[in-house]
Design a binder for these strands. Sequence first.
DNA 1: GAGGTATGTGTGGTCTGACCACCATAATAA
DNA 2: TTATTATGGTGGTCAGACCACACATACCTC
Lengths: 204, 204
Amino acid sequence: MGNSKVYLEIVQHLREMIHRDGLKPGDKIPSERELSERLDVGRSSVREALRALELLGLIETRRGEGTFLRDFRGHRLVQLLSTFILQDEKAKKDVFETKNIIEIDCLRLVVKRFDQQDISHLFRWTANAESLHDDEFFYRIIQLADNHLILRIWVILKDYYDSFIPIPPKNKREDYLFLLEALATRDEEQVISAYWKLRNLSVY
Amino acid sequence: MGNSKVYLEIVQHLREMIHRDGLKPGDKIPSERELSERLDVGRSSVREALRALELLGLIETRRGEGTFLRDFRGHRLVQLLSTFILQDEKAKKDVFETKNIIEIDCLRLVVKRFDQQDISHLFRWTANAESLHDDEFFYRIIQLADNHLILRIWVILKDYYDSFIPIPPKNKREDYLFLLEALATRDEEQVISAYWKLRNLSVY
DNA sequence: GAGGTATGTGTGGTCTGACCACCATAATAA
DNA sequence: TTATTATGGTGGTCAGACCACACATACCTC
């Protein structure tokens, strides 16, 4: 009987509850005390289960309010593994390279998918933003690529990147606008060459 | 200040401890009571952190003995997330797309980097392997790309992918050989078109 | 009535102390 | 020596207490 740990059973219970009741992101799940009572276990065991799910990014807790299901697409998969694994020096180089690669991937996706309105909107923002941060610009680009998973990965890489290159690149506004103009033509090669120019790299 | 939760700080402490002391899979980490005392927090908070890491498969705990680092490959994690999450169709699509993109990225990298010997070695293996698994083939390709981070991301995506498409693709050996021949020419476009053929996709 | 204030209730966050079950080892008995 | 027992350390679990916070309600002031 006592083979499985209580907190794992609670995780299982929660999973079933979510499926059975069709709970969706944003929905509230029972309070810790209520779960404790309903499942006839200690509150600390309930908390162990909830904290584990929270670390996974599956739930979100708000003090004074309750515990809620999260948008599952925001799971912490890559982040968690990377924070525990990504340590050596070689990793920095890999992060740098991977970040660039992903940005280019997204540019390629955007070339294939973008709506004229998206680009003009982004163009206006780029032209008018008083402070033009590289992060923000590419965040918008990657959003247009419409792949949430890649967005997550990029955000993580960006954080790592910032952790050892804390000085944000200060590119000229024209470079960004030039990149957008290239995008508007849907010419992949031109886009990538504009990206290189922006990043001051010849080849990766 | 008390913004961050104690159990997250403990996770962070453990991470640092692992890196600082160079702990490896199988090594023992301090007991719950000792951590509780050293970090000056309650034992229950320590447990919340440890249980979360356990659920992630990062540590293993043996009653009466202690808590030990695991050889983290994240299998547990993938399994967990997939049972919890994978109803989201868009998420599946993102995984599918991202896996393909990364494979193509690696092919591009390999085109730029490979040693003639690498390719001929891989060629021999592909021609002679009695059972030619898609996973193994691309694992070797991605190794040639010489980016550990991408390799890790790919492995995770592959596990995800397998969890909802359990039937491994059965491609013809010629298709792989054809891809390798394209690689040998260092012609990027040709490589990518060979990849499409292998994957039976026209465009992503 | 409108707007602000106090209060009560429910929630997560944390700590403490108490058991239990289990394991390894040392001390003891055969 | 070998087998048995005792002991201390470890994780597993629970109960209770208190805190910080958010929200709704009732209340008061204007």
